[in-house]
Computed example of a mutant assay.
Amino acid sequence: MITLNHLSTEDPADGCPLIPEAEEATLPSYELGTRPESFFISRTVNLTISLVLLISCYSAILIPAYLPADGSYHEFPKDLVLLNLSASLLSSPCQPRWCLTHLKPLSCSPGLLNIPVFVQQEHPMSWERPPPLGLQGSEQHLALALASLPQLDLPPFLSKEGHCRRCVVVGNGGVLHGSHLGSHIDQYDIIIRLNNAPVPGFERDAGSRTTVRLLYPEGAPHSADEYKQTSMVALVVFKSLDLDWLTSVITKQPLSFWSKMWFWRDVVEEIPLRPENFRILHPEIIHKTGEALQKYAFKQGNMVPTLGACAVVMALQMCDHVSLAGFGYNMQHPEARLHYYEEIRMDAMKAQVVHDVSAEKLFLRDLVAAGAVTDLTRAL
């Protein structure tokens, strides 16, 4: 057995110390009940770090819902097959009355034929329904609006008399994003757009021209650039005050402060178009569209269709060939884009209760299946 009898702080060889003497070491000492302040962070710093972590967690959860699902949309078309089909459609001869011929076999067709497109009479025989399905109770507002319009009839560039016309209704759906259909859309005779769907900056997918922009006051674009290359604005009347707004825009006489209070959002006060470039959509378009949708709805009653569905029915009155681009809400993919011009997801549609988008999708599917319209983006 080996035992150590003595530990020395000096190297036995040269007498140098191996460790410092105990009395030379200076160690911190604390009184009982105290703690080293440098070890702990202040309450302010603690709160700041907590807030940063909390915001970071929420951002990690929420921000991805507003980001593009696929960055390749900005580089390549979604489907070259669709582009080829669209090109083939445009290159084929225009056949007069194509839509009407293929529309007649449908059960909903009788109510969709020969509907007046724009309001032309100050005192029609009957406005049996209030807006938007009619103009009951808005007669005085209508008279003032019509008096401000130099022209009321269908202009030659919208009439199919003597011409075979191709029309495209450009919906706002996210399926249009990345489609590269813009150059094809611009080749149509009549291009119909809805509300404030933007054109500048989205020409590659949505085109650059606008023949008719259907809108209501709250949905009118505020930027003057959106009205460039626009032939006509058609007002969709949802309330009597909408007619007063149109009169104000045409005559340059501002609305009263009290009138402005009744709009649910700020409305544009000036649209850079000539008075002859304005019209009022006939409420029968909305009424007959709603009646057609009843055949596909689970609940019965007066149905208010979306502007997109109304625009399709309007196009059927003016055009020999009707194509759709940017239509179809796919609720089975909640992460998909809702609109082509913003990154809100499809989930947002669950919050709206005004329109029956499921019934509209079935209605439009039937039109496509019958050959009355063509779906360029194939989302219906």
Rank of each mutant, 00 (worst) to 15 (best):
M1D: 10
N5V: 02
P12D: 04
Y30N: 12
E31N: 14
G33W: 12
T34K: 11
T34D: 08
F40P: 01
R43K: 15
S50H: 06
L54H: 07
I55H: 05
L62R: 13
P64Y: 10
Y73E: 05
Y73F: 14
E75M: 12
F76W: 13
L82T: 03
L85M: 09
L85W: 05
H102I: 07
K104D: 13
P105Q: 13
P124W: 04
S126E: 10
E128T: 10
E128A: 11
A143T: 08
A143N: 08
L144C: 05
S159I: 15
K160R: 15
L176E: 02
I190H: 00
E203F: 09
R209Y: 11
T211Y: 01
S223P: 02
D225V: 14
A234M: 04
S256N: 13
F257C: 13
W262H: 12
R274Y: 05
E276N: 12
P283K: 04
A292T: 05
K295E: 10
K299W: 14
A315S: 12
V322H: 01
A325V: 09
G326Q: 04
F327C: 06
G328Y: 01
N330W: 05
H339A: 06
H339W: 04
I344Q: 06
R345Q: 14
V353W: 12
H355K: 06
H355W: 03
D356C: 07
K361A: 09
F363C: 00
A369G: 06
T377C: 15
